[in-house]
Each structure stands twice: as structure tokens, then as C-alpha cells.
Nucleic acid binder design. Structure first.
Lengths: 238, 238
DNA sequence: GCGCCCTCTTTTGTCTTAGAAAATATGCCG
DNA sequence: CGGCATATTTTCTAAGACAAAAGAGGGCGC
């Protein structure tokens, strides 16, 4: 069972939501299955019904469960899970997800990030360009061996998403960034790979600066495909 | 103010969530702003604190608000709103969103649906192909002037997303489908446009059947760009 | 007068108890 | 045996009390 116990975060209902959420995405409760009734779970987790119900509302809002009087509460089919909820993605990351999970995630990334680079090249404002440049500078300055390597990389990509001036692009980025961070850490990408990726990042920046949307898209495509290969290699090696 | 009153749905906390959610995405409460404290809102909406708090948890789960003791509850910045939550998209649709909203939504659609068609052509199972075919048949049989015109269209696209065997693609589709339905209705696309779009849909189906991913992608691209033009025209006409 | 600590106040967080409403299961009656 | 009323289970809503977080302000020492 996915167990979050011991380290209860700030407030109880979040802890309960995270405990139950992890169980669900981890497969401890299967879709279609009815989970025990509220009082039973209250006893198991030693929380009040108020807190449990607040946690249930969180899970319901994310599409994981549905409750009805007399029938109880059951796990919804996976297609209703809101996969672009950052919290759900975190629960996935923590549950040692199947390789397909990360494959699918990367597939999505390879779909929308090149398009984002293309859009950014067309629509970015001067201020947004500066932010992208600053993010790139941060990558160059990142201390190897620290988390900066990963966070600055993600920051660079987020800056591009922001520069699309498309709210949905931004939302996608916000959603998956923490899952990506987890993936980067997990695959413990070697420093060499990071250094080798710098020219690719620079090329994207240059293309966006020049307003060359075709090149921006192509460069992003190239970057992501080599990055994915590297990740695959590193994960398999474990 | 976005007002959902009168027609309270099944349960109270959902009604409260939807009332407050509409106010937020409708701009009645601005990001960064603190909303009145719990007791005040309870009195205004004439609900118990229990229900209000359950509604708050829903809104918190969707990234719209955040609460802290003593400080109160405030609206989060838009970048934290989970734009791919179907419920949030519904609240948007109901609040007469800006044209940019639908432009951005369509921009996203033009990014991931061609990619989905491409993937589906590569990965679809025979069963999934049958479902796509059935959805197309439903389009051909749809009674003009009814909602079938819209729902069968959306069903066709959902079937393709399913056929990608990528959970994230499916989730994107589930999220935006009801917003699309609203958009279709709102733009009251003329029947001629629908009839003219049938060959394009058929072409996509044929390409997926043949496993021709390049053509599937190209056809989807073509379909979406003409569809977007039509929508623009119809919306402007109002 | 200035800075630090302690207390006070406000607001959300948690628990408890009680009863209402929904929806199935049961059993009585014709 | 069928249909209707009743019982039962579970979530839903309400209300009241206290705990905990986190500023705000006042008093004290220097």
C-alpha cells in the first residue's frame, strides 16, 4: 500500500487526501471499486469525519472518486482522472509509475513544447524574451551536482510557455513541471548530458529572439528527442 | 456578478462551489484579492460553514483559491488555475469568456489533435478503429438541427484520442469536450459547414485505418484550420 | 525613543453530535 | 406473485465548541 503516514503535513485533510490519493493512483483501490464507508476510514486513519469529508471533496474535485448516499464512494474510471492536475501527477511520481506513464508524459511534451516554441517566437514580448534569456543564463551558471541543474532547465521551458501568451500552454507547464523534476531526479541525468544540452537550449533562445518560429520549433524538437533518448538510457540502466 | 442562484443542483456544496467558482473565473473576485471570511459568506449564501468549507476544498483542489488561518482566503494567480479541469472550463464557458479564451483553446486543439491523429494511426487497435468508424457513421446519420450534430462530431474526435493509447491525450479530450460543445452551440455552426466537414472526417478515418500517420496528421490539420475559420466567421457575425 | 517579547485578536482548522435526504433492501398485504 | 409501504444504510447538512496559526499591538527594559 502506498503509505504516506508518519509525516503528516500541515493540515490533516491534505494529509488524508494525499494518503487516499496515493492509494488510488497507486492501484491499491481499483477503478469501479467501492471504498469503505466514511466512518470506517475515519477509524482507520484516526481522523474526524469532517476532515475526511474535506479530503473526499478534494479527491472528487480531481475526478478520482464519486460519492452517493446509501451507495457509498467509489473510484472513478481512469479516463475521468484529471491527469493534468499537478497534485495527481505528484502522486503518480511517488508511486513508482510504469514506464508507460513517463513515455506518455514525454510524448505529450514532444507535442506541445515545439508548438509552444513556435508560438513564442511569434508572440513573445520583449520582456518575455528577457526572462527566457535570464533563464538560459541561469542554466549556464548552474552548479553541477545540485538541483539547480534541473530547476533551471525547467524554468527555461516554463519561460517559453509563458511567452506563448496562451493560458492553456502555461497551465500545461505548471501541471507537468513537478513531475518532470521528479523524472529528472529519478533518471539522475548525468552532468555531461546537461552540458551537451546547453547549445540546443541556446539555439532555441536565438530562434525565438529572431522571431524565427520554424527554427524554434525544429530546435525544440531536436532537443526533446535527444533528451528523451538520454532519459530512456539512464532509466533502463538502473 | 455571475449568478447561479435559484437552480441549486443536487447538493449544496457543489452549488456553492459552482457559485463561487463562477464568480472567480468571471472576474467578480480578482486574483490576489482576499474574499470575505467564512462566516460572512455563509450568511450571504445561507449555508452552513460545513458546506461552505467543503466547497472551498473543491476550489482549492482546482487551484482557484488558497486559505490560511488569520489571513483568510484569497484568489490565486491565474497561472495556478487548473485550466484543464472540465468544471473550470464550464464556468468559463458560462461567463461569456473573451474571444482570446476560445482562440487559445483552439490553438491548443490545433496542437494536440493532429499529433493525436498521427499517434492513433500508429498505435490504434482494431477495436479502437471500429469505434472511430462507428463514430463517423453517427456523424453521417446525425439529424441536422439537433445536438447530435455537435455530439457526434466530438465523439469522433474523442475516439481518436482514445486510440492514441496515451492517457494524457484522453484526459485532454475529456477536459475540453464540454467547452467545445458550448463553443459549437454558441457559434451555431451552420448545417452546411457540418456537411462539408464530413469528407475531411472521412479522410482522417481512412488515413488512420491505413496506418498512414503522416496523412492522418495532415488531414486533421486541414480539418481544424477550416473549422476554426468557420467558427470565427460565425462568432463575429453575432 | 527603540527594540524585543508577550498577550490579544482574528480567521481558518478540527472535532463532535445530531438529524435530513437519497437510494436500496425488505417485508407486508392483497 | 406483484406492488406498495417501511426499514436500513450511507452520504449530506447543520450547529456549536475549541485548537492552532499568525499578525497586531502594548508593555517593559535599556
Amino acid at each position: 500500500m502506498a503509505n504516506q503516514a508518519n509525516n503528516r503535513p500541515q493540515n490533516i485533510h491534505n494529509w488524508v487526501a494525499s494518503e487516499l490519493g496515493s492509494r488510488i493512483v497507486g492501484g491499491f483501490y481499483a477503478p469501479g471499486e467501492y471504498i469503505p464507508n466514511e466512518n470506517t476510514i475515519c477509524e482507520e486513519l484516526e481522523v474526524s469525519r469532517t476532515s475526511l469529508r474535506e479530503a473526499f471533496k478534494v479527491l472528487t474535485a480531481k475526478g478520482l472518486i464519486e460519492s452517493r448516499p446509501k451507495l457509498g464512494t467509489r473510484i472513478r474510471e481512469r479516463r475521468h482522472w484529471n491527469m493534468f492536475d499537478p497534485v495527481i501527477l505528484n502522486w503518480f511520481s511517488q508511486s513508482k509509475p510504469s514506464p508507460e506513464f513517463y513515455t506518455s508524459l514525454y510524448e505529450i511534451r514532444e507535442v506541445f513544447e515545439p508548438a509552444a516554441a513556435e508560438l513564442a517566437a511569434k508572440k513573445r514580448t520583449p520582456e518575455q524574451l528577457e526572462i527566457i534569456e535570464a533563464a538560459y543564463a541561469k542554466m549556464e551558471a548552474a552548479q553541477l551536482g545540485t538541483d539547480e541543474v534541473y530547476t533551471s532547465d525547467i524554468e527555461f521551458h516554463m519561460a517559453i510557455l509563458d511567452a506563448t501568451n496562451n493560458e492553456f500552454m502555461v497551465s500545461l507547464g505548471v501541471s507537468i513541471q513537478s513531475a518532470l523534476l521528479e523524472l529528472f531526479r529519478l533518471s539522475s541525468t548525468i552532468q555531461d548530458d546537461f552540458l551537451q544540452s546547453l547549445p540546443g537550449h541556446k539555439a532555441i533562445y536565438t530562434a525565438i529572439e529572431a522571431g524565427d518560429s520554424v527554427r524554434a520549433k525544429a530546435e525544440m524538437n531536436k532537443l526533446l528527442s535527444t533528451s528523451q533518448e538520454t532519459l530512456k538510457k539512464n532509466i533502463e540502466r538502473e
